[in-house]
Amino acid sequence: MAQKNFSTITELVLVGFSNHPQAEIPLFFLFSVVYLVNLFGNIALIILVAIDSCLQTPMYFFLCHLAFLNIFYTTTVVPKMLFNLLASKKVISYEFCLAQTYISLLMGAAECIILAIMALDRYVAICDPLRYLLIMNWSMCVQLILGAWTISFFASVVPLYFTILPLCGPYIVDHIFCEVPVLLHMFCADTSLQETMMVIGASGTLLLPFFLITLSYLRILVAVMRMHSTEGRKKAFSTCSSHLTVVTVYYGTGIFMYMRPKSLYSAEGDKLISLFYAVINPALNPLIYSLRNKEVNGALKRALERWPVSQGK
């Protein structure tokens, strides 16, 4: 009977912020602006790296993948959320709900691994600068990024596909989009295996990359403290500050969301957490990486200077 219910589900109620109807219109305009900032910032970053040879380095190659990930992830979540803020019937199709679940897992795992790769890149750049281009050559960069996406897929999407259970009514998703911690409460059968798989998967895609990031920055800290030049220390810290900011924000919310027991679930609290790492953080990333980055600001200035010339032609 459970399997029959599972196969005949066509749509689910996506509660979102309907518990606060007076806030829906202001939230629609706020999240629309955030989404546009996300699109503009991340697309602009990708274009800058593509057209400016000074930015065609391993660090910005990885950053482009992070920007693409941010665009794809939020585009899966935000347009539907915006539509439901204005709609009287706040629903999501079962197929799209599953798609959001798979994509959120894949993108979350990939972001963790890419952030770890970027930490490794900074470690090599600071601790072994003379061999940096030899170690972080383009072949290695491509292998690392392909490995990140492949591992993310097999560590997140595949286990979920083989362990997903039928859903029980009422088919109400009290969240802003569909993701695993929310669906666990809707499965008909015992979810002990799914919870265990989620913790194991999170250990591999959250904790292991976090351990590598921590180890890389400990080594970087030791190397920086050994520098005799104050200017050298300042430059080393400035190249890492943006990445550290993004890591702190992303990991803080991600670990809390995916590495706790189901008993600690709180619908309203989790909406805010998910909103932060799925909507707001992707919009902040290009700002964090560019506002204090002289290379990006220089590339933007050169692009703007060339723009009138190309328009004149």
Rank of each mutant, 00 (worst) to 15 (best):
Y258V: 04
L134V: 08
A67W: 03
Y73C: 10
H65L: 10
G108S: 05
Y94R: 08
V222G: 01
S192W: 11
A202E: 02
F256P: 00
K234M: 14
V33S: 10
A67R: 00
L85T: 02
V309I: 15
F29T: 10
C240W: 01
K262Y: 00
L167F: 14
I71G: 03
L115Q: 06
Y94N: 06
M136Q: 13
Y250T: 06
N5L: 14
I51V: 14
K234Q: 14
F62I: 04
V13C: 03
V49T: 09
H175C: 08
F72N: 05
L86H: 12
I117K: 00
C188L: 05
Q100N: 10
T214W: 04
A87N: 13
Y171E: 02
L12K: 07
N281Y: 11
D190N: 13
S274I: 15
P261F: 15
M257N: 08
R302L: 05
N5D: 15
I200M: 10
T10W: 05
E305S: 07
S229E: 10
S274G: 14
V13Q: 13
P129S: 07
H228T: 15
I135S: 03
P286S: 07
I280V: 15
V180T: 12
V37W: 11
R306Q: 14
P166E: 13
K90E: 11
E231H: 12
R260A: 10
T101P: 01
P308Y: 03
P181R: 07
V157F: 09
R306V: 00
A50Y: 07
L85S: 04
A125R: 09
P181W: 06
I47T: 04
I176K: 13
F256E: 07
I47L: 09
I92W: 00
R122C: 11
L86E: 07
H20W: 14
V157G: 04
A87L: 01
T150M: 09
Y132P: 01
F68M: 12
I280S: 01
Y73K: 10
E268G: 03
Y102D: 02
V296R: 00
Y35K: 02
E95C: 01
A99K: 03
I145A: 07
Y60T: 01
Y265D: 03
L30K: 09
I213F: 08
M118Y: 00
F276K: 06
I71E: 02
L215W: 12
T239F: 04
Q22R: 12
T74N: 10
L146I: 10
L218S: 12
M197I: 15
W307A: 15
K271C: 06
M259G: 00
K313D: 08
M81Q: 04
P286H: 04
K90G: 01
P26G: 11
G232P: 06
E268Y: 06
P26V: 11
F31C: 09
S242F: 05
M140E: 03
K262D: 04
F187S: 01
Y250N: 13
C178M: 11
V34T: 08
S266C: 13
Q3N: 10
I213T: 02
L207V: 10
R219L: 14
T239P: 00
I71L: 05
K313E: 12
Y102I: 08
